[in-house]
Nucleic acid binder design. Structure first.
Ligand SMILES: [Mn+2]
Ligand SMILES: [Mn+2]
Ligand SMILES: [Zn+2]
Ligand SMILES: [Zn+2]
Lengths: 139, 139
DNA sequence: TCAATAGTTTAGAACAGTTATAAACAAGAA
DNA sequence: TTCTTGTTTATAACTGTTCTAAACTATTGA
């Protein structure tokens, strides 16, 4: 009943809920990812942060975990730059500012943003998702 | 005066115009890229197509050429999938449908499409470009 | 409580896409 | 032509990611 004292309890439930065993590695990575609000991380960023936190986990496991969390709907992947995958802890519909210099993503809430005048998709295909990326430059 | 008979003439001019020597490789790649309307190609696609056309050119040169053409404003890069760069012969403002299965890009004209309600960019930064990617799935 | 089982982690190899290196080569100027 | 500088190329190197297979661990149910 004191969630602060059991930081893994909720995460363990979420993992079991999607059929993943709550291992030490997944719990630690889950805590890093979900403890402090919305985040956009690469595998290497998460691995470095885990190391800094004293969590021993291999890079392969970081990749496995990010991909499993994404498949389970706990994360979503954002494609803004080729050669580097970003994983977003905010899985709700929203968009992004992208600062290509600083390689930094910032959320744009879906509410308030409207994309109007889209043509019909090609025959046999339907819209899965609309991603708006606002690329930034120095003012 | 007969452009069909001198398919390289216009391309040679464009290359000189951006400070690139009109070499056999650049002229051939330029012809493949710009001869048949708007295209979205990867380096490997362009290399394969060149080979099929009997154009002898290394993959390194294809990469160099795509990057040089992009820097010169003759092409633009589209980031829809990590791990694979697409180059777009349509450098005007427009957007894309992306079929993730078939790895195929289709243009969405900028005219008619409106993105409204964007928040102000973070302090010190300005909007460089807005990219709308409409991801498709089977209907 | 303790196997047995199936899922998980890991080091390291492998892989894909791309860029760097440096030597051979070709375009353009003189 | 010659000279200079830009270009091409094979190949090595590099980055991000996935694969492999052996060691390990969470879970189950006897
Ligand atoms: Mn980039
Ligand atoms: Mn993909
Ligand atoms: Zn986000
Ligand atoms: Zn396009």
């Amino acid at each position: 009943m004191i969630p602060i004292a059991r930081p893994f309890a909720r995460i363990a439930e979420r993992l079991r809920g999607v059929g993943l065993r709550p291992t030490r590695q997944r719990l630690s990575l889950g805590r890093i990812l979900f403890a402090k609000g919305d985040r956009h991380v690469t595998a290497e960023m998460l691995h470095d942060e885990a190391q800094a936190d004293g969590v021993r986990v291999s890079l392969a496991t970081v990749y496995n975990t990010l991909n499993q969390f994404t498949a389970a709907g706990l994360l979503r992947e954002v494609a803004v730059d080729t050669g580097r995958s970003y994983f977003d802890t905010n899985t709700s519909r929203h968009h992004h500012f992208y600062d290509h210099r600083g390689r930094e993503l910032t959320d744009i809430p879906a509410e308030g943003l409207r994309v109007q005048g889209l043509p019909r998709p090609p025959e046999g295909l339907a819209i899965d998702r609309i991603d708006v990326v606002v690329r930034l430059k120095k003012a």
